[in-house]
């Protein structure tokens, strides 16, 4: 219990702190002035919410994906889901340039769902005793889909969009331009209601069937959550790597694999990590900023290597 309280406290501090970091100087003393209120209301608060929603929902999406795949080394961005969302978004932008953001998001999430189903259809056939094959195949699979998107983008002179979608960052987040992310947050909350079913999925198809679970239906609902979260993230802020990989692994080491217990912590840790990285991204070359995806890429890669190394030690 105290761990949860500590997490909430740390997250709140980061959240409030992030409101006072940015190109325009703002000190907590000035919050009563109209300019400061406008700044917080239109830019800083929406950004903080966007960061929290993105971090929490990506971490949960990663955790669900790992349970479905029964593999700790997969996440939406390395399993073709992110690339499929991007490809879907590109196709919509080309074919229906006047489409609303909501429609773009829906079609992007749908493409992400098709991409994830394809990923699981391929990796189902891999031998379970070779767990590292799954992420490797995912990276190749995602690479193929991503290069299809790059090819189309190159032909139609739209490469700069792909660059934006691939590199998640929050500098453009403003009131009126991030609210769709609340849907991702909602999807993550809904997954808590069926946490037991996802935990049982992690024990495999046989155990799931034995316990009377509708295996296919639960897998599909998990994939829908993953795809909605991924699609929304790519559309609104761009892809952010490693959150879905690193956070669930760290949380699992701390509190185990019972989703009912770990999901709140996963959400908080995901939100906290992205929030801290986003604050760092705003400070490191102040008054300019670097994309948060770059910062997280560096942190995430280091943690991932540590995870691989730690696992090797554990096995031997």
């Amino acid at each position: 219990m105290s761990r949860t309280a500590l997490g909430v406290l740390a997250l709140s501090l980061l959240f409030v702190g992030s409101l006072f970091v940015g190109a325009t100087p703002l000190s907590p003393m000035d919050v009563t002035t109209p300019e400061a209120r406008a700044l917080i209301w239109d830019s800083r608060l929406p950004r903080a919410f966007a960061v929290v929603l993105t971090g929490a929902s990506l971490a949960i999406a990663g955790q669900i994906m790992q349970l479905i795949a029964r593999n700790r080394f997969v996440e939406p961005m390395t399993a073709g889901t992110g690339q499929s969302a991007m490809l879907g978004l590109l196709v919509v932008s080309v074919c229906l340039p006047a489409a609303s953001v909501g429609l773009k998001m829906a079609l992007s999430a749908f493409a992400a769902l098709i991409g994830s189903i394809g990923f699981f259809a391929i990796t189902r056939r891999l031998p379970p005793e070779e767990p590292l094959l799954v992420p490797l195949v995912g990276i190749v699979y995602g690479g193929v889909i991503g290069s299809a998107a790059v090819y189309i983008g190159f032909q139609l002179d739209m490469l700069q969009y792909i660059d934006i979608w691939l590199t998640g960052e929050f500098s453009g987040t403003m009131r009126g331009r991030y609210e769709l992310l609340w849907i991702a947050g909602l999807a993550a909350v809904l997954s808590y209601l069926v946490a037991d079913q996802f935990s049982i999925l992690g024990l495999g198809e046989t155990v799931s069937l034995n316990l009377g679970l509708n295996y296919r239906q639960v897998v599909l609902s998990g994939l829908v959550v993953i795809s909605v979260v991924t699609g929304l993230t790519v559309v609104t802020v761009g892809a952010i790597p490693f959150i879905g990989l690193v956070v669930p692994n760290l949380v699992s080491r701390l509190v185990g694999d019972n989703l009912r217990r770990s999901l709140p912590l996963t959400a908080m840790a995901g939100a906290g990590l992205v929030l801290a990285s986003d604050i760092f991204a705003r400070l490191v070359v102040h008054p300019f900023e670097v994309p948060v995806a770059t910062v997280i890429g560096i942190i995430g890669a280091a943690v991932f290597l540590w995870m691989l190394y730690g696992r090797a030690q554990h096995v031997s």
Binding site: R70, G202, L203, G204, G256, D257
Partner: peptide, 8 residues
Amino acid sequence: VHAASRLT
């Protein structure tokens, strides 16, 4: 059951 699960 070759799940390296961290369930209690």
